[in-house]
Design a protein around this nucleic acid. Structure first.
Ligand SMILES: O=c1ccn([C@H]2C[C@H](O)[C@@H](COP(=O)(O)OP(=O)(O)OP(=O)(O)O)O2)c(=O)[nH]1
Ligand SMILES: [Mg+2]
Length: 414
DNA sequence: AGCAGCGTTGGCAG
DNA sequence: CTGCCAACGC
DNA sequence: GTTTG
């Protein structure tokens, strides 16, 4: 059902390809509040039919003799297994969170890494020493593990729980758009002591939205609702051009029962890395993504825009209200536009998890490659010089080139 | 010393 | 305004 | 905080 909205010129889908380089996106600066691109009414296109549906992971057959190397630190874990050391990892999670709140990125990650391998350990740990054999667990964490085994907790964690400043900062960081730096500044320089104090402070657009939906954003999205969004988005986009390929990635693609947000990957058969050059797109993106976003707005699905660039949109959506029914919850939605020839690296990236991505990217680096959502390329460890992108025609290609056995998305749920 | 790699926003310097 | 960079997020 | 070179 074609929308009955503004009709104008009817562009053939192929204009998508029209190699237009330059053309800086020009968010007029004079703006005050309304800054994101406004809805430039572009119009519909109605080519063939036959909607492409979501691509699924490829079969994983021909594993072929691969250049197997030894796996890095972390050896892939089976997320479906039981955690025999939850008591321990729960405490370590607190420490990781604290470090993150303080802005100690690396310490926070170090704890997370240790948590990963301790969670995968096949039996209850009985000593810190035993723990230290695990990848990512060094002297400090081993000592903590010992303390946790003996006392059930850690003195440090207990003390941090009593630290008002830390607790407040931790609370403030639950607002989307407030990170360690802003949280500390709010507390130390602006006297903010509660979420409600923020209402009287200058906030960025993102932070305002984070405040507005503070409670709603903390609610998980049931898989059934994710299924609805998948159908809705496909439907809306089909209206623009039925050759759009929509993939809901992230935790949804990894099979999770509930998700934190909706990660949409969008591509189109005719949308390739246009013109020539680079492995980082830029040309026709802009118009296309904006068209998609404005259409979703018109249909009433989007309620707020956090950010909108040429390739990535971050915003808020909500299912249509139904009379005499509880209102639906506002959800965070991310939409990424990818040229078709970069689709596989893009799904791979968007499927995650983030820890899995970090792991496999580290592995790639060790082997003299660099992996991003755009490509897998060789990269000289010394000079940093990168090669031309390798041909990637499936997710399996990425695994194979890195000498890693294929893992279905469900097995990447670290 | 490195820790994955990248997009968008917003502040600041010039 | 452009260019750069920190912050924040995916 | 931990691992690597
Ligand atoms: O630091 C990050 C964060 C995310 N991603 C990728 C992997 C991730 O799966 C995807 C979507 O991010 P999101 O934050 O939505 O994570 P998720 O895996 O979908 O989990 P959640 O259910 O919390 O949304 O983007 C990264 O590569 N690095
Ligand atoms: Mg997600």
């Amino acid at each position: 059902m074609p929308s009955a909205t503004s009709k104008q010129s009817t562009l053939p889908a192929s204009w998508l390809l029209s190699p237009r380089k330059e053309q800086r996106t020009c968010p007029s600066p004079g703006r005050q509040q309304t800054s994101l691109k406004s809805t430039a009414a572009l119009s519909t296109v109605s080519p063939p039919s036959a909607v492409k549906s979501v691509r699924k992971g490829p079969k994983k057959d021909a594993k072929a003799p691969t250049p197997h190397k030894k796996h890095t630190p972390l050896i892939p874990i089976d997320p479906s297994k039981k955690n025999y050391n939850k008591r321990i990892t729960d405490v370590l999670s607190e420490l990781s969170k604290t470090e993150k709140n303080i802005g100690n990125q690396w310490k926070a990650q170090a704890y997370s890494k240790a948590i990963l391998s301790i969670s995968a350990y096949p039996k209850p740990l009985v000593s810190g020493k035993e723990a230290q054999d695990l990848p990512g667990v060094g002297g400090s964490i081993a000592k903590l593990v010992q303390e946790i085994i003996e006392t059930g907790t850690s003195e440090r964690v207990q003390n941090e729980a009593k630290d008002e400043r830390l607790q407040t900062i931790s609370m403030l960081m639950r607002v989307s758009g407030i990170g360690p730096s802003a949280a500390a500044k709010f507390y130390d320089e602006l006297g903010v002591r509660s979420i409600s104090d923020l209402l009287h402070r200058p906030l960025t657009r993102h932070q305002k939205i984070g405040m507005k939906y503070f409670n709603e954003f903390e609610k998980r999205i049931p898989r059934a609702e994710m299924d609805r969004w998948q159908a809705i988005i496909k439907d809306v986009l089909e209206d623009i051009d039925d050759r759009f390929v929509v993939t809901i990635a992230g935790s949804y693609r990894r099979g999770q029962d509930t998700c934190g947000d909706i990660d949409v990957l969008l591509t189109h058969p005719e949308f390739t890395t246009s013109s020539s050059s680079d492995e980082t797109p830029n040309s026709n993106h802009s118009v296309l993504l904006q068209l998609v976003i404005s259409r979703l707005h018109e249909k009433g699905y989007l309620t707020d825009d956090i950010s909108l660039g040429d390739v990535k949109y971050m915003g808020v959506c909500k299912l249509p209200d139904v009379p005499n029914t509880e209102a639906h919850i506002h959800r965070r939605i991310d939409i990424r536009l990818s040229p078709i020839d970069m689709y596989w690296p893009a799904v791979f990236h968007s499927t995650g998890s983030d820890q899995f991505n970090r792991w496999i990217r580290s592995l790639a680096a060790e082997q003299g490659y660099t992996l991003s959502e755009y490509s897998l390329r060789t990269k000289d460890k010394k000079s940093g010089a990168v090669g031309t992108p390798l041909r990637i025609s499936s997710e399996e290609d990425i695994f194979r080139l890195l000498g890693v056995e294929w893992r279905a998305p469900e097995q990447r749920d670290w």
